[in-house]
């Protein structure tokens, strides 16, 4: 088995299978937890677990170096969306201090053909994404906070996730890098 160049994983899965599997998971969570807020928290936690592992996949495949600048981080997150979800969000709305930006996208494999029923209007259906961002960045010693500003499932025209840099996790930095 020989590989060339950037060694990006070409193995793909039908996004409908992905959409429906995620849907089955959210449905199950809604059955198991009575409170929609609890489901939101669970989704974020699962996203965190995925994020701490997804980052190693990203690093192993792209051979990416460390980010020393939040704009660098934003670009890497954008390419992560492309590699893993097949969508390219746009990076917009940089804060004046350069410590926060928004990711905007119109299509999202997680929410293909999803409608939120009346009893779940507070459900953050894609909350798994905020967890993934938190987990992935934490593993490279960066604490970020992310939340949804706009949600297509709630009648907005795009979905917008805001990502804010909180701090560098100094004591977790591997030896030699400080």
């Amino acid at each position: 088995m020989s590989r060339t160049g950037a060694r990006l994983d070409a193995k793909k899965v039908n996004s409908e299978l992905f959409t429906l599997t995620y849907g089955a998971l959210v449905t199950q969570l809604l059955k198991d937890y009575e409170n929609v807020e609890d489901v939101n928290k669970q989704l974020e936690r699962m996203g965190y677990n995925m994020g701490i592992r997804l980052i190693e996949d990203f690093l192993a495949r792209t051979g990416s170096g460390r980010c020393y600048d939040f704009r660098d981080t934003a670009e890497k997150i954008q390419s992560g969306f492309k590699i893993f979800l097949g969508i390219t969000p746009t990076i917009t709305n940089w804060s004046p201090a350069g410590d926060a930006f928004s990711l905007c996208f119109e299509t999202n494999p997680l929410t293909e053909f999803v409608e939120l029923p009346d009893h779940c209007l507070n459900l953050k259906y894609c909350n798994i994404l905020t967890g993934v961002l938190r987990g992935a960045c934490e593993m490279v010693q960066m604490e970020v906070a992310s939340w949804f500003l706009q949600d297509q499932l709630k009648n907005d025209s795009v979905t917008e996730i805001r990502v804010k840099f909180v701090k560098r996790l100094e004591d977790a930095i591997p030896a030699g890098e400080d």
Binding site: D9, V13, N14, E16, L25, F84, G86
Partner: peptide, 25 residues
């Protein structure tokens, strides 16, 4: 919306991690 053509894809890594969380749950 018109019927999806079913041609779009996500990475296997992403699906595998989602499935792993599902199994653990």
């Amino acid at each position: 919306k018109s019927l999806s053509k079913g041609k779009s894809e996500v990475s296997l890594s992403c699906y595998a991690l989602l499935f792993s969380e599902l199994v653990q749950y």
